[in-house]
Structures are given as structure tokens and as C-alpha cells.
Amino acid sequence: MTARSGMCTKHLAFVGSQILPHEAGLRQWLTRAGLSASERDDLVQEVYYRLLRQTSFDHIEDPRAYMYRTARNIMLEQIRKNRVVSITTVQNIDELGSIDIAPSPEQAVSARRELARVMGFIEALPARCRAVFELRKVHGLSQAETARRLSLSENIIEKETAKGLSLILKRVAEDNPPPADIVPAPTRNAHVNY
């Protein structure tokens, strides 16, 4: 088993700030493409798995386009594996591909905007959950300190943390980003560009 920890924090920071903000838009598109809820979950998890497998993110110029392309490639592979060629899927995938060239409205996620987003996630949590997240994330307290401050057991704090993170992940999945620009298929060079 291989463990990679060196690059990891940097990678997680990249995914947190550059990929997560676009997840909801991707899920919306997948809904329109006719994928069921469980198919969307599987696909999104597979997308993050592919990101996890990357040794470097340096080559990713447009994270949103990269995320969409990855999803598209996974869909193509699945179509191929299942030998199902439904032309609806085929056309929709084509639209997904063409998103690549549309400039991303959120391409530069500013630090200020990201902060507002994160604070919005925390403020929307139920009261006790919110208190835990404010102490841990805003004031940087450890789990033990948070437990002392709130007069709760560490076990409860861990449960509230898991619950809060689950709720925030749901918000990440459902967040309303600006509508994705779906444009007609690009006139791209066909096969081999000699």
C-alpha cells in the first residue's frame, strides 16, 4: 500500500478552492443528461478519485473544464464498458464536452469570495453543529478544547463534526452556481492534427 502525504495538503487545498465550487454545476448538468441520483453520486466520487490519483495539479489551467472533462471521459468509458450506445447520451455527452471552451465565470475564485462561501456554509448549520464549527474552524480550537468550551463530551463533538461536514458536503453538491454555458459543438480539429 502506498501512502502519499507530502503533496497532500496542497492537493486538498486545490480541490477545496478550485474544484468543490464547481461540483454543484456538474451535478446539475448530470441531472439534465438523465443520470439518476445514485449514478450522479457514483460519477462524482469517481471524478474525485481520478483527481486523487493525480500526482500533480500543475497542468490544470481551468479546473472547472478539467472536472467536466474528467466526468465526460468516465461516462464515455462506462458507455463503452456497458456496450450501450444510446444516442441521447451520446449527444448530451457532446454538449458536456463543449463546455470546455466556455470561459468559466468562476475561474478566478477570489479569496474574499471563498471566505464568504465558507462562512455561509458554517452559518447555515443547526445551532450546536454551528457552535462546534465556529470554535474549531473560526477560532482554531482542538476537539478537546471545543468539548471543554461547550461542556460536551469529545464523542459528541466528533459526531457533530461528522454531521456538520455531511451537511456542508450536501450544500457543496446542491449549491446554486451561475448557470453552465452550454454552447453548440465546437468546430474542433477532427482526429489527427498532422
Binding site: 486538498l12 487545498a13 477545496g16 468543490l20 474525485y48 483527481l51 465558507v118 458554517i122 461536514l165
Partner: peptide
């Protein structure tokens, strides 16, 4: 990986 990224983002 996704959950870790969200946790760190906070």
C-alpha cells in the same frame, strides 16, 4: 478525498 478537501476548505 472530497470530504477531506471540504474539511480543509473550512
Amino acid at each position: 478525498f472530497r470530504a477531506q478537501a471540504a474539511w480543509l476548505m473550512l
